[in-house]
Amino acid sequence: MDNNWYLDEEFWRTFGPLMFNADTFARGEEEIECLLSLLDMPPVPTLDLGAGPGRHSLPLARSGYPVTALDTSAYLLDQLGESASDLPVEIMRADMREFVREQAFGLVLVMWTSFGYFENEADHARVLENMSASLRPGGRLVLDLVGLETLCRTMEPVHLTEYDDGRLLVERPALIDHMTRLDNEWLLIDGDTIHRTHFSHRVWSAGEISSLLNSHGFDILAIHGDYQGADYDLEAERMIVIAQPIEST
């Protein structure tokens, strides 16, 4: 797969049903409930970048937040559209590197490690600038990542997942490029058929992501180690970064 693996609809058609199943949708409901408790803010227009089939957009909308759900995959957004017909969800097929809506949102979410797909560091900077421009004064940015600290503690050279229907997913992750990217090889064994894919994404430590956000106009309000608001430390499950644009004086 080329460097733009996230634009390949065949990837999402093959692996999406495993990634976005009933269990992950149920966890999405719980994650949003916890995040809204952490944020303690009234419903505001919300931008969900990398929204996929809506595992976070849908519970946000059901909680009264008008959501703009953005993704590049028509396949995933079609699934979201089928589920969101009676909810305040605007579906946008667009690239987060290109999308800006000036001061339109009180909350921007990038969940489930959807920030970090790009190989070019300038693309990550561009997304941060777009998010800053799209947030209202006092708005909040939430990045949900797996931090380098967590990967160093938990990563296995081979991870196997067997599904109820008999399919087997073999994951072979490795930290590369001086531990700045996570390289992934996935093999999906489905009877006599083997689907193989290879992709990578950027990883940051807590200090690195803080510096990156600061350098692109954000103040860090908190970094949590899970959705419940635990401290970010060597036992962290996730890296939940809450930030806001630095207001000009």
Rank of each mutant, 00 (worst) to 15 (best):
L221I: 12
M155R: 11
V170C: 15
Q244A: 08
G166H: 04
P45D: 12
G16M: 11
D86P: 05
G139F: 03
D233K: 04
L234T: 13
L182V: 14
E208K: 04
S215V: 06
T249H: 13
H195V: 09
T249Q: 14
E171Q: 14
M155Y: 04
A94V: 00
P43D: 09
H178L: 07
P53A: 08
R27I: 11
W186H: 14
D164Q: 14
M19V: 03
D123N: 10
G81S: 10
R238M: 09
L70C: 08
R13S: 13
E119F: 13
G28V: 00
G191L: 10
P173C: 06
E10I: 11
D71V: 10
M179F: 15
P59R: 07
L60T: 00
N4W: 12
G52V: 01
L60F: 02
G106F: 07
I91K: 04
E9W: 08
L77P: 09
L212C: 06
I32Q: 02
L36W: 04
H224I: 01
L160M: 09
F20G: 05
H201C: 09
L141V: 02
V142I: 02
W204V: 02
L212G: 00
A51C: 06
T161D: 12
L145R: 12
T161K: 12
A243P: 00
T46E: 02
A26G: 01
R93M: 15
E29D: 13
Y163A: 07
T68Y: 08
T24F: 06
N214D: 14
H201A: 05
M111I: 03
G191Q: 09
S134C: 02
S205P: 01
Q228E: 14
R140A: 00
L160D: 06
A236Y: 00
R126G: 10
G166W: 03
Y227S: 11
E31Y: 01
S114F: 05
C34H: 13
L175V: 09
